[in-house]
Computed example of a mutant assay.
Amino acid sequence: MDVLIHVFVALHIIGIASLLGGFLTQMKAMGAGTARFVPAMLHGALTMLVTGVALVGLNEADGNHVNNIKIGVKLLVLVVVLGLVYIKRDEETVDKGAFAAVGGLTMLNIFIATLWT
């Protein structure tokens, strides 16, 4: 079971890398007002959602303690990010506020995951 959990953790990290990487590649365009949500951002957020839910289930099944409040906060942040990216995915440009919010919330999710013990 530990190997399976570690595989899903790796996939979860790949998802966050895709979401954050897509944001970082568009930072220069954000300054120019031409930023858009690239497909990597949507796919990364969806990967995070699926693997995160799987990780909670696998850890519960393995008898590990899961901090449900932390998971709930992370899920709420991710749902907001996913909603913003999904709704505005086809727009040619996205306003700076929405784009910055996705980047900030993504980094918030990383800090919650690593600092909340």
Rank of each mutant, 00 (worst) to 15 (best):
H6N: 09
S18Q: 03
K74G: 06
L115Y: 12
L76C: 11
L19R: 10
Q26R: 09
G72A: 04
L115C: 12
A32R: 13
K88A: 12
G63M: 08
L24R: 06
A100Y: 02
G33H: 02
M107D: 00
R36E: 12
I5R: 12
K28A: 13
A29P: 05
F37Y: 15
G52Y: 04
T47D: 04
A29K: 14
A100F: 12
P39G: 03
G21H: 13
T117H: 15
K74L: 04
G83Q: 01
N64K: 14
V66Y: 03
V85M: 01
L55R: 06
M48T: 07
A45N: 03
E91M: 14
A54P: 00
L75I: 10
L49M: 02
H6V: 04
G63P: 12
E60C: 08
V3E: 15
N109G: 10
D95I: 00
M107V: 13
K74T: 06
L76W: 05
A45I: 04
N68R: 15
A17G: 15
F111S: 13
A100G: 02
V79W: 08
P39T: 08
K88T: 04
I16M: 12
L78E: 05
I71F: 13
G103P: 00
E92N: 13
G57W: 11
F37G: 09
A17R: 04
I14N: 10
A54F: 12
G103E: 01
T114L: 14
K96S: 13
V38T: 14
L82I: 09
D62H: 13
L55D: 09
K28Q: 10
P39A: 03
L11S: 05
A101H: 01
V77P: 02
V102G: 04
L19T: 10
A35W: 01
W116Q: 05
T51D: 02
H12N: 05
V56T: 13
V102P: 02
R89C: 03
M107W: 12
A17T: 15
L58M: 15
L108T: 13
M30S: 13
W116Y: 09
A101I: 00
K70D: 07
L78V: 10
I13P: 01
W116E: 03
A101K: 07
M30G: 06
M27D: 00
A10C: 07
T47Y: 02
V80L: 03
L49F: 08
A10H: 04
K70Q: 05
I13N: 08
L76M: 14
